[in-house]
Amino acid sequence: MAGSNPNAKPMNLTLNVWRQPNRTAPGKIVEYHVKDISPDMSFLEMLDVLNEDLLHAGQDPVAFDHDCREGICGSCDLFINGRSHGPEKGTTTCQLHMRKFSDGDTITIEPWRASAFPVNKDLSVDRSAFDRIIQAGGYVSVNTGGAPDGNEIPIPKEISDRAFEAATCISCGACVAACKNASAMLFVSAKVSQLALLPQGQPERKTRVENMVAQMDKEGFGACSNIGSCAAECPVGISLENIAILNREFLAAKATSNNLA
């Protein structure tokens, strides 16, 4: 993979961008041209250039989601050339650099598409369905009183490593966007297995998986066909093993919980 090349020439690009004025109005793809894009820019910086051009021309800039711009917040939800977060494996859009593209390229930029993720405006998407799934069970109860000692609860290294791997999910929604079924199983499975693996997650273990899956279904996400697009496009590499854990946590909870409702 070529690193930053001081001699790399600035690029001229054609952008096909989804424009939609608000939630209810219909949208369409609009063609723009950007000039003199440095290969060292991030994809979002390239969009900043586009927006400056639009502002100078007295036009409405393109709305897109971003926050940390360092790959940790999961805001930058862009579907680029038919892939979540673009062509590079294991990156968010903010960490995608323009050197992955070539002078003269046409780049198609769309919002995440899922019935559970309505488009706010242009490329900005409402992912609060994820928040409601977390509210339904993605938490642990904590006792009041003095703070417990850090190492009071013994957790085997292997378990803590696996829980940590699952915990790296940044709730970006790339899994949903890439899935043919717009399924949120990878996201939900990361949260469920993270907490199911740890002793702190045991009190709510059964109700958590029951409630989170019920909320996931209620939000209108699709079911899992074990296709694997999600894990392949996930910027932090959450694995499909988590979905198997979710399935057995769900089955075990349904078979043994005291919840008759």
């Binding site: 038919g82 892939r83 769309e110 890439a178 717009a182 699709g222 079911a223 296709i227 697009s229 392949a232």
Partner: peptide
């Protein structure tokens, strides 16, 4: 399931390159 999965994405993508991240058979069961 097919009905549910179709309803989960009513507005499709203009560009869609699932062949880069998954097998054809799994998407066409």
């Amino acid at each position: 399931l097919t009905r549910r999965n179709k309803a989960a994405r009513t507005q499709g993508y203009a560009q869609w390159h699932a062949e880069k991240n998954s097998e054809w058979t799994s998407r066409n069961m």
